[in-house]
């Protein structure tokens, strides 16, 4: 195929500002060396003072309570407490990865490359999005933990079931709707309040992902104890097997 046959798109008018250049040796090599040394030292100190955990031999007969995944999966494990496992364990992580990978194909303008937080609106949007996300996450977790569902149990789905609705409503539709509604409403607010362009909307949505990941991971790690019930970090007893 010759050049002429390629689709022609209007080139974006931009001003590039790479600025002054310096030699990699020594300007970059020295920074890399210092970074490597600091992290080597840090890891050596950690390895000397903090032991990697090793508990009792694996025993299929004895279930530790709680049994938790490593920290970077505790966000997903937290979701598992609130919705159908296919949604929490498979569909949500898959959707997150696909949407993350899609970011550069949605926000395709070159302008805005190479600048932290893009525009003067970038930092306020990031802060607002982080707070908005955190409030939603924490409120929903508290509601789902303590909302009385009649027969002594608690939670949104049990309540809906007690009203005679099929379990799928509480465990699939409501959580799925919320997981779409929260980022969507965030995007709408940011668009109205800041007259946001595509990049600024991406900043709001990535912040939604990041803040959710952090909040869920912290709650899953530090605030879930025996029976995966909510509690303060100092109330959590080590699971059996230690």
């Amino acid at each position: 195929m010759s050049q002429e046959q390629l689709p022609v798109t209007e080139p974006e008018q931009v001003i590039e500002d790479p600025g002054e250049k310096v030699h990699v040796w020594p300007h970059l090599v020295s920074i890399e060396l210092v970074g490597a040394l600091i992290f080597t030292l840090l890891l050596i100190l950690m390895a000397i003072f903090v032991k990697a955990p090793l508990v009792d031999l694996a025993n299929p007969e004895v279930t530790p309570n709680p049994s938790k995944a490593p920290w970077y999966f505790l966000g997903l494990q937290e979701l598992l407490l609130h919705m159908h496992p296919a949604l929490a364990g498979v569909i949500v992580p898959t959707a997150v990865l696909v949407l993350l990978a899609a970011i550069p194909y949605i926000d395709t303008k070159r302008a805005g490359t190479g600048v932290w937080f893009y525009s003067p609106k970038g930092i306020p949007i990031t802060i607002f999005s982080a707070i908005y996300t955190t409030v939603w996450n924490v409120s929903l977790i508290l509601i789902d933990e303590y909302l009385p569902a009649g027969d002594g149990s608690t939670g949104i789905a049990p309540l809906l079931i007690s009203w005679g609705l099929p379990p799928a409503v509480g465990y699939v539709f409501v959580p799925a709707a919320l997981m779409i509604f929260i980022p969507w409403s965030l995007a709408v607010i940011v668009k109205r309040r800041w007259d946001a362009d595509t990049r600024e909307l991406m900043i709001a949505l990535y912040t939604f992902f990041l803040a959710s990941f952090i909040v869920l991971t912290i709650i899953g790690t530090g605030f879930r104890g025996h029976g995966m019930k909510l509690m303060w970090p100092w109330q959590i007893e080590p699971p059996i097997g230690h």
Binding site: L54, A58, N59, V90, I91, P239
Partner: peptide, 24 residues
């Protein structure tokens, strides 16, 4: 995480495999 074959490993893998097993 599985390799030490202790309780931590075994049950983390259990949780993980159950998650994968719930795929539609």
């Amino acid at each position: 995480y599985l390799l030490p074959w202790d309780q931590l490993a075994y049950w983390a893998i259990t949780v993980g495999a159950e998650m994968g097993g719930s795929a539609p």
